[in-house]
Design a protein around this nucleic acid. Structure first.
Lengths: 245, 245
DNA sequence: CGGTAACTTGACTTAAATCAACAATAGTGG
DNA sequence: CCACTATTGTTGATTTAAGTCAAGTTACCG
């Protein structure tokens, strides 16, 4: 689709919040902006729909676009030459991805489930950011949140046991679900065991065993592979922080 | 020292580049700005000198300041309640630290050696950033570089062997030294083995053994504990990326 | 020069990986 | 709707990379 097509898309004003970022109003990319600012953003955005398990872009690709996730879920990952994989983030509605330096994406992005996102051409978004400081700051704060999360993940990867890793992972997913207006439990696991393993620096066997172990101690329940019920969130949180719960 | 004292400090204009960020001109916080922009920044900065092994701030402290490192080196780390530590970054001249969300630092900062830094009160820097887009973008790009580095470190922590971790670490230190105008080899190691271990998710014994092993294969030499000579940078780089060098 | 802290090396242990079935789940086509 | 197959997930047996425990050794500092 060309830029002209994008501009021709219906733009639903004067709705106060961007319809396509309706989840996570507090921190979403385009929430709380005024009419003119939304029009500027809408004029350069392109709304996209992806199938489950679809590639959005690959590490090393020309970084032409920034994406704001509006529904669904995405994983970001890096590969070593022999196929070892590290997932560097799971994204949910309200998160953005695709920011890059050196004009190349530093990770690959793939959907976990059927997903919708707004796409913003990097160059045009740069221009909007330069002219609308509140948007620049919005993008900055989202990037900073990613950085804080990355630091927490480094602590997890470098210093936590398998049990602590899983406890932290489930706690974090639950907290983020609450931020998006969902219940703290049960937590949806839209990713495979293999994805969880590659996010936590473990193998699928260890992920499976550890979840079984947490189930046996009554801290969680596993109604099905795609869902976890948190039965004792205090114990889970305690475990996540290195306590001996 | 009060804000008035800061303002009373001699400001060396019309020097084109901030004297205190003279290393790493390309990416440094205050390089390449015009006279008015430098004056604005200088008016809110406070120049500091720290001893070696001095605490700059602790995780959880009120995040009142942002720091731009001008000489020396700093480590950023997070702790678990039982004392396990993860170093989330080593910083060198040209790097900034102390950016935070929620008004709390997400990590502790300590000097490795005698260090000088510019300190900017968060509130006042916010104001300058709002009014001077080029400064906002400068801070943004430095934060984004940190994020890219954090992603690389997640790949290292989650998926690389001890040997690959050390190879990556030395390669990265060497590359950054070059960026600051130093030689690619020998590489200075201003941090202890314990710091290296806590950065790479290893123990000091494994760090020591692995360095000895790399020395035995002739890839590096260890003239003393604080320095590494890279004898075969191609082999080291190959190892770092998971090759079987 | 003495003493402490930092680093190295060695012996042994262990948490998680690997290898190997097996079970459950989800698609697919009859 | 139900077999049939492929994929994903679980569990068990064994291995291994890195951790732990324990000396030594070197370097640094008062």
């Amino acid at each position: 689709m060309s830029l002209l097509d994008t501009l021709a898309e219906p733009v639903d004003f004067p709705t106060p919040a961007c319809k396509h970022c309706e989840v996570n109003r507090e921190q979403a990319f385009c929430s709380g902006l005024n009419r003119d600012q939304l029009i500027r953003l809408a004029s350069i955005r392109h709304q996209l729909r992806f199938e489950a398990h679809a590639s959005v872009f690959d590490e090393g690709d020309q970084a032409d676009n920034v994406y704001a996730l509006t529904s669904g879920a995405v994983k970001l990952y890096k590969l070593l030459s022999d196929g070892r994989r590290q997932i560097v983030g799971f994204l949910f509605p309200g998160d953005i991805f695709g920011l890059a330096i050196d004009d190349r994406y530093a990770y690959s992005a793939e959907t976990l489930v059927s997903t919708t996102a707004c796409r913003f051409p990097h160059r045009q978004l740069d221009n909007v950011r330069e002219n609308i400081p509140v948007i620049e700051r919005r993008v900055f704060n989202l990037a900073l949140k990613d950085l804080v999360r990355a630091h927490e993940q480094m602590l997890l990867l470098g210093r936590k046991s398998a049990r602590e890793k899983l406890a932290t992972f489930l706690t974090s997913l639950s907290r983020r679900a609450v931020e998006r207006g969902h219940a703290a439990s049960p937590v949806a696991l839209p990713m495979s065991r293999s994805d969880i393993a590659d996010f936590l620096g473990l193998t699928i066997e260890t992920v499976s065993r550890t979840l079984t172990q947490l189930k046996k101690t009554g801290i969680i329940a596993l109604p099905d592979t795609g869902q976890v019920t948190i039965r004792n969130s205090a114990a889970l949180a305690e475990l996540a922080e290195g306590g001996q719960a």
